[in-house]
Design a protein around this nucleic acid. Structure first.
Lengths: 195, 195
DNA sequence: CCGTACATAACAAACGTTTGGCATGTACGC
DNA sequence: GCGTACATGCCAAACGTTTGTTATGTACGG
């Protein structure tokens, strides 16, 4: 009943970390029980001890994705409204090695999510939540007169579309799109909408 | 010298079609020799007869992707410049069932492409070519005074980012983003940059 | 002891690939 | 014209490997 000689949650976290590492390196196509065990330096028995099967592993990986997206070390919003929106966008982009890994996994998850009804629904919900966060900043910016009035949901869709599309291009051409260039593109984008 | 009781290229096309079908339904994670053979109603031997292995199969699938993107039944540009750019964007978006399938494959390909150096390089090149096409319309629009002057390459990156990001959201939430809504978002997007 | 933690190892299924063979066509010496 | 030679199209089967999963064994703290 009571915990044994190892901390269960801590070990489970270790497995999570190994999953993360495998995904960042080989994508969802390379995610196997044995690969995770190897990255962890253990047997597959340990992996199955903490995750019942591969499906649970994948589902958990997507959960980590959302948690890390929400809790990643990010810039605090310097001010509400437009500045907050800009920060939210920069916090998504692959501006640091960690953010590159996260986005690589995020983008890779789309293939499996599009093929599995459960994951599909979960992913759809995730996007809704992200857009809700953007909408809040957009409405605040509109209240402050920093953005013209209009459907904040539609604008959030546009902002998220631009941001995620930029993520993909940055992942495939990091030399052409270093952090500074990405930031500049975000500023140009926002400038076009603030008039 | 060159016997042919069946048209080699034609049969190869049939295999391509089967690959396409499997990808649209199960993604790259579900692309197997046997699945392709089953979709074709043949043996795996036939598949390997036309494509040396799975790697060639994937590489060819990505080629089809680009060819179909370029040659798909699309709206002709009603006019050069901004109108052409708008048409190019609409031609990418999943506005029809066929376009949905194509984009589903396109998005799914990112996971494998990010994990394989060869495919990665090929994909990077493909994006460059797509951006070049957009840049041409952008420069024409600038010449016509429809768009403000500025780095056409950077603007092309922004346009492609927005378009591809919208593709992803539309795939995951087709009810919220029907064709009319996508078109509207494109028009709003362009309006913000034309001022 | 008893339950947790993990290794080891086995398992069937699915995988990519290879092989042998049987058609069926063209090419060509005769 | 005809038979030999050879290439192509394709199937069926088997190969060895890798997969996810499960069963069994061992160590150990409470």
């Amino acid at each position: 009943m009571t915990p044994a000689r190892t901390d269960h949650d801590s070990r489970r976290q270790d497995v999570s970390e190994a999953v993360w590492q495998v995904l960042a390196e080989h994508g969802f196509g390379g995610l196997t029980m044995r690969a995770v065990a190897a990255a962890l330096g253990s047997s597959t028995g340990l992996v199955t001890h903490y995750f019942a099967g591969k499906r649970e592993l994948i589902a958990h990986a997507l959960d980590i994705l959302e948690v890390r997206t929400a809790q990643r070390p990010r810039q605090a919003a310097p001010a509400p409204g437009l500045a907050a929106l800009r920060t939210q966008m920069l916090n998504i982009l692959p501006l640091t090695p960690d953010a590159v890994a996260m986005n690589r996994i995020w983008v890779g998850s789309w293939d499996v999510a599009l093929s599995d009804p459960d994951l599909f629904a979960a992913q759809t919900l995730r996007y809704e939540r992200v857009r809700a966060g953007l909408s809040a900043s957009i409405e605040e910016a509109q209240r402050l007169g920093e953005l013209p009035d209009g459907d904040s949901g539609r604008l959030a869709t546009t902002v998220l579309a631009f941001t995620h599309g930029l993520v993909v291009q940055a992942l495939f051409d990091p030399d052409r799109l270093p952090a500074a260039t990405q930031t500049r593109l975000v500023d140009d984008f926002l400038a076009a909408f603030t008039r």
